[in-house]
């Protein structure tokens, strides 16, 4: 098992946001976490990423307990976090963003090689490589953020709301890229507000509600479930 969460309780203050959460990711899977606002989806991802330390429970990655490790340490072990919102550096150019995103590679040659790979894969980034990231459109920014996965080739990449703020056409493009990332050898754990889209590309999914596990199943099962449909897919 690549990633395992066991009875995680975590939060930001007095009240826990997550209570007794369990889930797992196998190698080669794309897993989606869905649920209503306030369900704790992003909190779960942040706990796995290392921004939050659980008060109870364990996060196990590649058979090791990583609950106390820093974000950078987890990155070095192959667990990479791509946060939501501002996930690129607006005042750096695209190339500079990639250089910084590849910090954990710790090797100049590997880095320049990896950057070449990214630019070949995404011609739009290649064309604008010397532009400042703040000049990019929403979709281009997300592409830049996602390309960190190509740079670092992690075992598991955590994606927090990749479709946030993007137009539907762009969302499709981004999700195609996520499938590509899955195919290229990285497992994916994503949190998605757009439940339909998220589940459609996932092997399995978890439904969270009020900080607890509610449902789980394959992507298809959850898509077809009446309960999920009513609550999250808009009937």
């Amino acid at each position: 098992m690549l990633l395992k969460l066991d009875g995680i309780t975590a939060g930001y203050g007095r009240e826990p946001v997550l209570t007794d959460i369990s889930m797992h990711v196998e190698q080669g899977e794309i897993i989606c976490i869905i649920g209503p606002n306030g369900a704790g989806k992003s909190t779960a991802l942040r706990t796995i990423a290392g921004q939050l330390i659980p008060t109870r429970g364990e996060v196990r990655f590649k058979e090791k307990n990583i609950s106390a490790m820093s974000i950078a340490q987890r990155g070095e072990r192959g667990l990479v976090f791509i946060p939501q919102g501002m996930n690129i550096f607006p005042n750096l150019t695209i190339i500079e963003n990639l250089e910084v995103a590849g910090t954990l590679l710790n090797d100049k040659h590997k880095l320049s090689h990896a950057i070449k790979e990214v630019l070949e894969k995404y011609p739009v980034l290649n064309k604008k490589q010397h532009s400042f990231a703040r000049e990019l459109s929403g979709g281009e920014r997300q592409l830049l953020a996602l390309s960190r996965s190509i740079l670092l080739k992690p075992d598991l990449v955590l994606l927090d709301e990749p479709s946030l703020g993007l137009a539907p056409i762009v969302v499709d493009m981004i999700f195609d890229q996520i499938i590509e990332i899955g195919k290229s050898g990285s497992s994916v754990l994503l949190v998605e507000q757009n439940a339909r889209k998220g589940l459609s590309i996932s092997h399995r999914g978890y439904v969270l509600e009020l900080g607890r596990n509610r449902l789980t199943g394959t992507g298809q099962e959850l898509l077809e479930s009446d309960e999920v449909r009513q609550l999250y897919l808009g009937g």
Binding site: F89, N91, L104
Partner: peptide, 15 residues
């Protein structure tokens, strides 16, 4: 420059 842009993101990057 990255750190002054976004300190949280920088620590995620491993800077």
């Amino acid at each position: 420059r990255a750190v002054s842009d976004n300190i949280e993101l920088s620590s995620i990057m491993g800077i």
